[in-house]
Simulated scan of single mutants.
Amino acid sequence: MIKTLFVTNDFPPRPGGIQAFVHALAVRRPPGSVVVYAPAWEGAARFDAAQPYPVIRHSSSLMVPVPSVRRRAAEIARAEGCDGVVFGAAAPLGLLAPSLPVSRRLGLTHGHEASWASLPLSRGLLRRIGDGVDVLTYLGEYTRARLARALSPRAAARLTRLAPGVDTGVFRPGCGGAEVRARLGLADRPVVVCVSRLVPRKGQDTLLRAWPRVLQAVPDAALLLVGGGPYRPSLERLASSLGVTASVRFTGPVPWEELPAHFDAGDVFAMPCRTRLGGIDVEGLGIVYLEASACGLPVVAGDSGGAPDAVIPGETGLVVEGASPPAVARALTGLLGDPGRARAMGARGRAWIEAEWDWDLVAARFAGLLTAHPTGDRPA
């Protein structure tokens, strides 16, 4: 049995999609086959005590590829008898790969590695990372194409798709949405839900700017914004200036175990993400679209980066220009105004998730990457 060291800045209890992805990969490995090296984070002791594998915390909330982190990772690998290492996010900690005493090295990539590929300095570092691991994974075709342009030909040839999965037993229709609706006073109102960090790229501001048009067509509609983040004060001011505060609910941060119920509280899921800063701030995939589909909701996705990979346009949802309030409003009013169409898209989405995105399938792909024979063309 191969034993794997996860070296990652992205790990619970810190919230986020990458954190959930890495944790889900680790927890599905056989007992005794995983050890995690991750930064300190508030609530870590309680979280770590509940895990079926050891979690060794760094002394601070961020790890960078400096000698002290390299030495500590190497010490853990030796002490635990690790055969392989997985970098939860290849950039930047994947720079440590060649110096670790293991025989198998994997780097997971996400949206920010695709952003690294577009800048001269970080592109060079990404090329070094690619040459130092046996495999780099990618989320979808958008991220694969951007990464391949930055990597050496040998590293580009080793790119392998590994996208997050969805726990279809947890994210499912009827998983608690009625209770959330009752608690928030939404009752039987048509609800558009967005579950995401409140940051500009995710497009909650576009949802708010679209909302007056939605209310013209569906006067009793409600917008449920789930999540916390630095953009909340600006969003609340925007809602007030648009005169839509009465129909918008901000939940703030929600514990992970309550997230499925908040998806289930919606009739339509929408996150009109957009690419910002000249392509540096881009959506890698958007696991929330897949979780919403698993809950039987039609989705409205922005056209940023790899987000369209999480939708079958016209079947499980719609892809729109994320920076266009009119386009978002048309998509939302079309779905809210045709519940039969919305339900059919949600049902198709659920079936797609079960067939293509279930965590058991992802875990099997990941196991294959860990046990594959090294290619032999990575520099020592």
Rank of each mutant, 00 (worst) to 15 (best):
V170N: 11
F171I: 12
R172P: 02
G174E: 01
C175R: 02
G177D: 00
E179A: 14
R181C: 11
A182P: 08
D188W: 13
D188Y: 09
V195D: 06
R197T: 15
R197E: 08
R197A: 12
V199F: 01
P200T: 08
P200W: 00
P200K: 01
R201W: 00
G203C: 12
G203I: 00
D205P: 07
L207S: 09
R209T: 03
A210V: 13
W211I: 01
P212G: 03
P212W: 04
P212H: 02
A217C: 07
A222P: 11
L224C: 07
G229W: 09
L235V: 07
E236M: 12
R237S: 13
L238H: 06
A239G: 11
L242H: 02
L242V: 00
G243D: 13
T245H: 13
A246D: 12
S247R: 13
V248H: 06
F250T: 07
F250I: 03
V254G: 01
E257Y: 02
P260W: 03
A261K: 02
F263D: 09
V268D: 11
M271H: 05
P272S: 09
C273H: 08
R274M: 04
T275F: 00
L277Y: 05
G279H: 01
V282E: 10
E283C: 07
E283P: 14
L290V: 06
A292T: 08
P298E: 08
P298D: 10
P298G: 02
A301W: 00
D303S: 09
D303N: 13
S304G: 03
G306L: 10
A307C: 06
D309H: 14
D309S: 14
